[in-house]
Design a protein around this nucleic acid. Structure first.
Lengths: 234, 234
DNA sequence: GGGACGCTTCGGCGGTGGTCGAAGGGTGGG
DNA sequence: CCCACCCTTCGACCACCGCCGAAGCGTCCC
C-alpha cells in the first residue's frame, strides 16, 4: 500500500450527510457499532419508514454505513470506527445539548467516564486501560499504530477468557491504537479491543446505560481493572 | 473550570455549515490561520460579494470564524485550531480529489510531509519535531496536554532567536500538544508552536507552496532540524 | 397460498437555503 | 466634500431536499 498524497479532499458531500437531523439521529444510534434494522432507525429518528429508507440510501451511497439483508430485515451498521471518530470530532466543536432529566445526566457522566466507540472501550476508562496495558508491558508497539500482545499479556488476557490466538486470525486488524477524540489520548481498537470490551461487559465490569454507548464502571470493574491490568481509575 | 458532562451534542448545525461548496472553499482558504478579507474569500470561493457576505455571516454565527475590522476591510480568520482539526478529521473519510496538475501533485506531497495547521507545524515534520523535542528533553509534559520548556530547551530555542519568556506572557496558551489527524500523533501547538513555526520559515527551513499550507523542507531545514533538535526526517 | 410484515420506490408538496441585482452604510483618499 | 471602494442588507428567484401517501416487492408464517 503505497503512500497516497492528497492535495485537497471534497468533504462537502460527507458534511451534507451529517447535516440532517434524521440522519444524525440514525448515525448516533449506530455509534455503538451494533447493527440496527431500518425500522428501528426510522423510529429512533422519528420519521416514517419511507423517509428513513431514503436517508439510509444516501448514507449507503456516501459510504457511511453498510447493510446486510437478513430475512425481511435490512440491518445497517456504521461502516467503520473512523466514522464514529469523525462524529466525535465534530461533536467537540458543537454546542452541548442541555441535559434535561436525571437519567440523562447520569448517562452524560457515564459517557465521559466510559463508553463504547463503535465496538471498543473509550472515554476515561478506555485511555486509562490502554495506558495500563502499555505500562504493564502487556502490549507493545509493533509499527506506527499497530500493537502486539506480549507473552505476559497473552497469559493475562487468556486468563480472562480471551482467545488471543483466534483473534489474531480474524480478518480484522488485530490491535491498534485509536485516538479518543474527547480525551485526546489513544485507546485500544481492533479485534482485540472489541473482544476485550465484550468480555469485560460480560464479566460485569461495565453496565450499559440507557444510552447504550454509555457505560457504568461497576465495583467489580474497578477491582478487575486494577487486579488484571494495574489500571486504577480516578 | 468544573468538568462538563455532555450527553449528546447537536452537531447538525456545524455539519450544515461545512456542507456547502462556497463555505468549504472559504474555510479551506483560512486553514493556514492567516486572516483574509471578505473580498478575497469571495473570489476564492467563486461567488459574488453579497453571497460571500451571507456565508461569512453564518460562519460567524456558528462560531467557526472571527472577524476583525480594519479600515474598510473585514478580515476573517478561523476561530481556532480545533476548527482546522475538525476539517482535517472530516477529510479523512472523504473521497480524495484527483490531482490534476504537476504543481498540484507537488503541493499534495508537501502537505503530507509538512504543512501548517492553523498557525503551527503539522504533517510528518510536525510530529517528528514534537517527538524530537520531547526525546531530547527540550520540553516536558506539564499537565494533561500542557508542556513546559526545560532549561536546556530554553537555551536551544533562544539560540534560534525565540523570545521564550515573552511567549510565556502571551494571552494564548503557551505550549500544548495537539493531535495531528492525518499522522495520528501529537504536534506542538500554542504560542510556542506558532512562534517556532514562524521562526523556522523565517530561517528558510521551510518554503511555502502554492497552496499556502503546504510546506517544503529545504536543505537548510533538514540540517537545522537535525542540528538544533536532533530531528531527522525520513 | 393468502395475509401480515419490513422495506423500498414513486410522485407530489412545502420549506429551507444559495444565488445575484439593487441599494445602503461606512471608511479612506483626493 | 465627494467619490471610490469594501462590505453588508434587502428582496426575489430558483433548486434542492426532506417529508409523507400510495403503491410495489420480497419474506415469513400459518
Amino acid at each position: 500500500m503505497g503512500a497516497e498524497y492528497v492535495l485537497d479532499v471534497d468533504f462537502v458531500p460527507v458534511a451534507a450527510l451529517l447535516a440532517d437531523r434524521a440522519r444524525a439521529a440514525m448515525l448516533t444510534a449506530l455509534l455503538d457499532g451494533r447493527p440496527l434494522a431500518a425500522g428501528e432507525l426510522a423510529r429512533t429518528a422519528g420519521v416514517s419508514a419511507q423517509t428513513a429508507s431514503a436517508h439510509l440510501g444516501r448514507l449507503l451511497d456516501g459510504g457511511l454505513v453498510t447493510v446486510v439483508q437478513q430475512g425481511r430485515h435490512r440491518y445497517y451498521r456504521l461502516r467503520g470506527s473512523e466514522i464514529a471518530q469523525v462524529i466525535e470530532a465534530l461533536s467537540r466543536i458543537s454546542p452541548p445539548v442541555e441535559v434535561r432529566s436525571l437519567r440523562q445526566s447520569r448517562d452524560a457522566r457515564r459517557l465521559h467516564e466510559a463508553r463504547t466507540c463503535y465496538d471498543h472501550l473509550a472515554g476515561e476508562a478506555g485511555v486509562a486501560l490502554f495506558a495500563a496495558l502499555v505500562d504493564g508491558g502487556l502490549i507493545e508497539a509493533d509499527g506506527p499504530d499497530a500493537y502486539e500482545v506480549t507473552v505476559k499479556g497473552e497469559e493475562r488476557l487468556e486468563a480472562l477468557g480471551l482467545d488471543v490466538a483466534g483473534l489474531r486470525k480474524a480478518r480484522r486488524r488485530f490491535a491498534w491504537q485509536c485516538l479518543d477524540w474527547t480525551e485526546r489520548r489513544p485507546h485500544l481498537n481492533g479485534a482485540l479491543g472489541a473482544a476485550l470490551t465484550d468480555r469485560m461487559i460480560e464479566l460485569g465490569w461495565f453496565e450499559r446505560g440507557t444510552t447504550r454507548r454509555a457505560l457504568l464502571v461497576t465495583e467489580a470493574g474497578y477491582r478487575g481493572l486494577a487486579d488484571s491490568f494495574g489500571c486504577v481509575l480516578a
